[in-house]
């Protein structure tokens, strides 16, 4: 794989990828939903028709109507507005947790591939140890110790996802390391950090981004699960998980709260997974099956 550092070809490439993405109905669907997810995540506070935490007991548990599109919950809050504002938590988590985890994973993975065997081996052991904790049980243990908060969730997601990025990057770097153009750089006396940043990193970032895109559903799911259990985002702050929990208590008589809180979760998780799959097909045809 040759290095591509030319800015112009880089941009054209991105444009090509987006054009290919949008050329199939599923790809287009995923691009639209993912874009909407981030746009609503940023603008949710402004576009919500009602105040998401304002109580109106007289209007409690109403069905969908023209005033309240998705009805109201047990204390009369507008479910649609709460879902819009709840997108903020999901998108904030998706962006921060995955970026931090990516940064740590790429850094450690590149180090593991370029150090002595012993350090490499002990890093692998640590990665595998961390991966052997089931995410949610690990999350519960951490929350038992440090209490629930959004930062705790970020920490949990970072710790439970970075090892797979690190492992992926390590494998990629190991195969790149023996490539001729890297050996040539080393022979010319280029320093290691420069080789890593200029020549290895650009070749590693693609596959890792694909995995990251497919991990976002996991992030969204963990948040929803923890908030559903009352161990994530604290009420009254709306998040998809807390809204699911509100609806769960009244699932027999007023099922629309659970139905409508499940829909954004389904749409975004499916969209991110499809996006990841499509990206893999486009960027790495070898992997296509």
């Amino acid at each position: 794989m040759a290095k591509r550092t030319n800015k112009h070809t880089g941009l054209t490439r991105v444009r090509n990828v987006i054009r290919k993405l949008c050329s199939t109905p599923l790809g287009l669907f995923s691009v639209i939903i993912v874009t909407a997810f981030f746009v609503v995540g940023i603008t949710g506070d402004w576009i919500a028709p009602y105040d998401p935490i304002k109580l109106d007991i007289r209007a409690k548990l109403q069905g969908p109507s023209s005033a309240h599109w998705l009805g109201t919950d047990q204390v009369g809050r507008d479910v649609f507005s709460r879902l819009l504002v709840g997108t903020k938590v999901a998108s904030y988590l998706a962006v921060t947790a995955v970026s931090i985890s990516l940064a740590i994973g790429i850094f450690l993975g590149m180090i593991a591939a370029f150090t002595s065997r012993w350090i490499d081996w002990s890093m692998l052991l640590i990665f595998d140890t961390v991966r052997s904790f089931p995410t949610l049980m690990f999350a519960l243990a951490v929350i038992a110790l440090f209490g629930p908060s959004i930062n705790t969730i970020i920490g949990i997601i970072v710790i439970s996802t970075f090892p797979s990025y690190a492992r992926l990057v390590r494998t990629q770097v190991l195969s790149l390391r023996s490539m001729e153009y890297i050996e040539a750089q080393r022979a010319m006396g280029t320093r290691l950090p420069r080789i890593l940043m200029r020549h290895i990193f650009p070749n590693v970032i693609g596959p890792v981004m694909i995995v990251a895109s497919m991990d976002i559903p996991l992030v969204i799911g963990v948040e929803a699960g923890l908030s559903f259990l009352g161990l994530g985002v604290r009420p009254p702050t709306p998040s998809w998980g807390t809204i699911l929990n509100d609806g769960f208590s009244f699932i027999r008589n007023t099922p629309w709260i659970v139905i409508s809180a499940g829909l954004p979760l389904i749409l975004t998780t499916v969209a991110f997974t499809t996006l990841g799959e499509r990206l893999r097909d486009i960027l790495d045809p070898k992997l296509r099956r």
Binding site: P217, G221, F228, L244, G247, V258, L265, V270, T273
Partner: peptide, 11 residues
Amino acid sequence: IAVPPIVIGLY
């Protein structure tokens, strides 16, 4: 594969 089990369970 994508949808969290909690949503599948509730539905």
